[in-house]
Design a protein around this nucleic acid. Structure first.
Length: 275
DNA sequence: GTGCTTGTTGGCCA
DNA sequence: GTGGCCAACAAGCA
């Protein structure tokens, strides 16, 4: 599930609960894929006694800063989530990392283990953080940059191109479908076949969907919705895309689903045409 | 048992 | 070298 807005939701969940709190204990499920590359003794030595100072998200990744120079990176993969539990929490079999404070347990849970935890200690920013592409909502994400990228990927389906993190950081399967649906572009059209007007519409839709998804899913300011998806309007494709017999919120047509660019894609026939 | 799954990477091939 | 496709990773669910 986790794309840009869900990632921000999970970051806030840990941050609102435990920013300013001191780590008292670190439990690591050491041989599991998301954490097995981490030097546990180093992580424990540095993190225990350090406070959670601040946190950020970029694309599908999170950064939690501890003490002076320690950083924990989190990528949730396909099924990862961050949970806040009471401090007497007992880790289950999918809880691969747990940070305890006096008040809380901060849990990284990931059944399918496509997620990844990074640990870094030192004054310089780690490359796993700095190499992330500029956000869709930043000034660097221009119409021209999108147009250039589409030209270079001219023969790929536009759906596959929207999933490329080097130009569309944080966009995943459901956001890509939402963007194409709003822009009225069929997911199987090749990137090179879009007209300049369509590229402009697509670029705008990327920004609109990113902004609205952040507001609806992660909330504004210090407020956090009770759960993922509770704030998503019925007018979005998102709430209709997985159900058989789901209908387009704009045209009422039966939605179609098929594998495009190797991923399940959902579109509204009539509104999004192959031409 | 089969066939899916909202992510990313690396290998193969044109 | 570049771009495009696909299997692999691993577990749960219908």
């Amino acid at each position: 599930m986790p794309e840009l807005a869900e990632v921000e939701f999970y970051r806030k969940r840990w941050a609102l609960a435990a920013t300013g709190e001191r780590v008292t204990r670190v439990e690591l499920n050491a041989d599991k894929r998301p954490v097995r590359h981490i030097a546990i003794r180093d992580a424990r030595r540095v993190l225990i006694g350090a406070k959670l100072v601040s946190s950020e998200t970029a694309a599908k990744q999170m950064l939690f800063r501890f003490g002076a120079d320690a950083r924990l990176g989190v990528h949730l993969g396909m099924t990862g989530e961050l949970i806040v539990a009471p401090s007497d929490f007992a880790p289950g079999r999918h809880d691969h990392l747990v940070l305890f404070t006096r008040q809380h347990a901060l849990v990284f849970r990931d059944p399918r283990m496509f997620g990844r935890i990074e640990f870094h200690d030192g004054p310089e920013e780690p490359s796993w953080w700095t190499r992330i592409a500029p956000p869709v909502l930043s000034p660097a994400f221009t119409r021209e940059a999108v147009g250039d990228f589409l030209r270079r990927r001219a023969r790929s389906p536009i759906k596959a191109v929207l999933l490329m993190q080097h130009r569309f950081p944080g966009i995943g399967n459901w956001m890509a479908d939402e963007i194409l649906w709003r822009a009225a572009i069929h997911p199987a059209r090749t990137a090179g076949a879009l007209s300049p007007d369509e590229v402009a519409t697509l670029w705008r839709a990327c920004r609109t969907v990113a902004r609205q998804a952040l507001d609806a899913i992660a909330g504004r300011g210090n407020q956090l919705p009770a759960d993922l998806n509770v704030g998503i309007p019925r007018s979005w494709l998102f709430l209709h895309r997985w159900s058989d017999g789901g209908r387009c919120p704009r045209t009422g047509a039966l939605l179609r689903r098929d594998t495009i660019g190797g991923r399940t894609s959902c579109w509204s026939p009539g509104r999004q045409r192959l031409q």
